[in-house]
């Protein structure tokens, strides 16, 4: 009698939007980042959904093991860009590693604007 050893094929994949959402939530918790900035369309949909779009301003490229992220942000006035960049990068590496097992290999942060928290409230 012949026994057939069937192996279970397991695949865990993530949609780009899922990674973008994780990155959005994580980045907005880092002190120094006061908002994520999208394009005209996403800013408009964000206004309609009362600011619930957490993937705004984030581009994610997801591979099997690695991930690349691009964030467009508004920096809080008085914070050093490099310090904030390092904090966001470290936090994203940690959270993505824990939640998805993916490694952040490329991270680009684009600072669109510098504002105080009061200014941001006034603009909204």
């Amino acid at each position: 009698m012949e026994t057939k050893n069937e192996e279970l094929e397991r695949n865990l994949t993530f949609d780009d939007q899922v990674i973008a959402k994780i990155a959005g939530i994580t980045a907005s918790q880092v002190p120094g980042i006061i908002s994520l900035d999208g394009n005209m369309l996403s800013e408009f949909t964000d206004k309609l959904t009362q600011g619930n779009d957490q993937t705004k301003g984030i581009e994610a490229q997801v591979g099997e093991k690695q991930v690349a992220l691009k964030l467009a942000v508004t920096l809080e006035y008085g914070k050093s860009a490099e310090t904030v960049f390092t904090e966001v990068s470290d936090k994203l590496t940690q959270v993505l590693g824990e939640m998805t097992g993916l490694k952040l290999v490329k991270f680009e942060m684009h600072i669109n604007d510098v504002k105080t928290r009061e200014e941001l409230k006034e603009n909204n």
Binding site: G38, L75, A81, K106, E108, M109, H110, I111, D113, V114
Partner: peptide, 28 residues
């Protein structure tokens, strides 16, 4: 496409980088 003005790369660390927009520098 996001609306940007002139952009400068202010820090590179291998594949990662920070870019800053002219408007951000002016507001700072």
């Amino acid at each position: 496409q996001p609306t940007t003005q002139k952009v400068m790369t202010i820090h590179r660390d291998h594949a990662s980088k920070i870019q800053v927009d002219q408007k951000a520098v002016e507001n700072q």
